[in-house]
Design a protein around this nucleic acid. Structure first.
Lengths: 342, 342
DNA sequence: ATGAAAGCGCTAACAT
DNA sequence: ATGTTAGCGCTTTCAT
């Protein structure tokens, strides 16, 4: 029972018609080409019967479209990104697109290579949470007419569609929440980063504090895959700032590392230190005490991203549609880690 | 500065040689074909200069290899799977393979479609955590000579490479740990499932209990993406079994749902109920109390999977190499949720 | 030591 | 209403 791979020619021969006709029928040009209904049905039936599937490689080579979307995230094992990947994937498959993904590690060199690879593969569209340093490469994609949607952060000097959350307002509100509850020495643990989302978060933090005439306490940690590394940086920071009464963590994994650090120091939340995390996580609901968190609307982010991309993919390439820049609001889930006890 | 896409013919023409020669040089057949060193260098230099990249679609069409691996997991947003995806991806890219992935939702129909899609795309190898019901489809892949590596679970009647953990021994040990600590009414929250890994976990649970003459308390929950759904099932179970003093959760997300359910019921861990989770999670370290967890060696699982697959991919297709079945041990991290207080 | 030519499987402009 | 034909860009056999 050797299932020989059938080609469109095999089908044509078996049915004693030309490959062209088969191709037309299979691609829905039957009506337009006025092919006999009877023939159309016969072909469709036969194709179904023998289980013929067109070779998409050949089709892609011919049409120049691969029906593939390239997805590049910072780290697929980060629940924020894997959550988004999940939604994007689902939506893409529904629309006949496959996803090829990769993690960038925030490394511009790696990311450039990946863009190159994806391009060789002729992916039809790109979804990227990009590190700083790949602006040129992305501009080249755009110049080549390839649809690119950025998310999570934008890039200076890159004009394309983008989906973000309102980072600035998010941390601004979070800090004000802390101030309302009576906290005065509020720290920020963030990344050494020129990435737009981190800058926005830093900015919101600064604005809120300066409005109230409070002092800033910021530590910027280098991006690292190693959790222990992050924990150590945070430990050092917390030990050098004994008077802190609250701290905002700029990402979900910084918050996780931070909680571990706080635990090691034997500090009590929120009595010794109040905590807010950027990004929600199951952990923050179930840890003790539960952790107040800024929640990003993952489903909507993914949805906006894929909707914009699909629209570009399906639009007439001659008709330029303006770039969309979507900024979504976050929400804050107030839990026990910011509950003023005094 | 319109960067026209260069083809091998453009290169050949510019250099006034044939495409054949360029192809040979680019594919490392220069020596074997005894092409002049001087020419080789000139071609390489020019190619580098103009940034020519072969069209991999065309190459794939011709060679029948796509340098792509299809990865199918239950749910990419589950940290177990996204963690594995991360390692696999990294290793694959290093070896010149790209990953195209999809989540199966444990749905055999969806999975069949995906296998079909991946096959149309001519992926070179498959990595699958498969739901029951796709045995035939996978056997077809194998019959067609396509390398398949299963992981997390195996499939009845499918003979191929597989990487698992020792599920049976893992839960057996976990239950014995509970028994040692004096727990007697030990429940198991698992999935309604005929999947091998869940059966193994159930089996280990049963063996341990029966050895000690203890009674089983099992609830089997239908697979669902909706956490609230899981929580409700667990709530019902816990309320109907007031005499339970310990519970083992069969997966990480069941444990998370379970912890939420326990919290809602106002039960104290471990005084009212001891808890063990299958699969580790940051949460289990940081929740209060911390949760004892069976830890799967994610890096090793991913590593075995990709190593086996690459070996098959690189081996002479004529030389059949026997299937490898790797069973890795888990470890148990004992935390406070199983700390006998009495 | 290098090139001509065929062909992977498909699509679509151009016949008829 | 259907078929002929010419590629898409690459690899590879066979010639020279």
């Amino acid at each position: 029972m050797k299932k020989k791979k059938l080609s469109i020619n095999d089908i044509a021969k078996s049915l004693d018609i030309s490959a062209t006709t088969v191709s037309f029928i299979l691609n829905g040009h039957a009506v337009e080409k006025r092919i006999r209904k009877e023939l159309v049905e016969r072909v469709l039936k036969y194709v179904e019967e023998v289980g013929y599937k067109p070779n998409s490689l050949a089709r892609s080579l011919r049409t120049g479209k691969s029906n593939t979307i390239g997805l590049m995230v910072e780290d697929i094992s980060n629940p924020y990104f894997s959550g988004i990947a999940r939604f994007i994937e689902e939506n893409a498959y529904k629309n006949g697109y496959k996803i090829i993904y990769s993690s960038t590690d925030n490394d511009p060199e790696k990311t450039k290579d990946l863009i190159q690879m994806f391009r060789e593969r002729h992916v039809d569209g790109y979804i990227i949470s990009a590190p700083v340093g790949v602006e040129e490469d992305i501009n080249e994609l755009i110049a080549a007419g390839l649809p690119v949607v950025l998310f999570d952060r934008v890039l200076q000097g890159v004009e394309t569609d983008a989906v973000e959350v309102d980072n600035n307002a998010s941390t601004y509100n979070a800090i004000n929440h802390l101030i309302d509850r009576g906290y005065k020495n509020i720290g920020l643990v963030t990344l050494i980063s020129v990435q737009s989302q981190m800058l926005g978060r830093l900015q919101g933090y600064k604005s809120a504090l300066s409005e109230q005439g409070l002092k800033e306490h910021v530590v910027e940690i280098p991006f690292s895959k190693d959790q222990e590394n992050n924990i150590n940086h945070i430990l050092t920071f917390l030990e050098s700032k004994k008077d802190l009464d609250a701290v905002l963590f700029g990402t979900n994994y910084l918050a996780i590392s931070g909680l571990k650090a706080i635990k090691r120091l034997g500090l009590t939340i929120p009595d010794d230190l109040a905590v807010i995390a950027f990004d929600n996580h199951d952990l923050f609901e179930l840890s003790f005490p539960s952790i107040t968190a800024i929640t990003q609307p993952i489903a909507e982010i993914a949805n906006e991203v894929i909707t914009i991309l699909l629209k570009k993919l399906n639009s007439d390439p001659l008709v330029t549609i303006g770039n969309q820049s979507v900024v979504l609001p976050t929400s804050m889930i107030i839990r026990d880690s910011t509950k003023k006890i005094k």
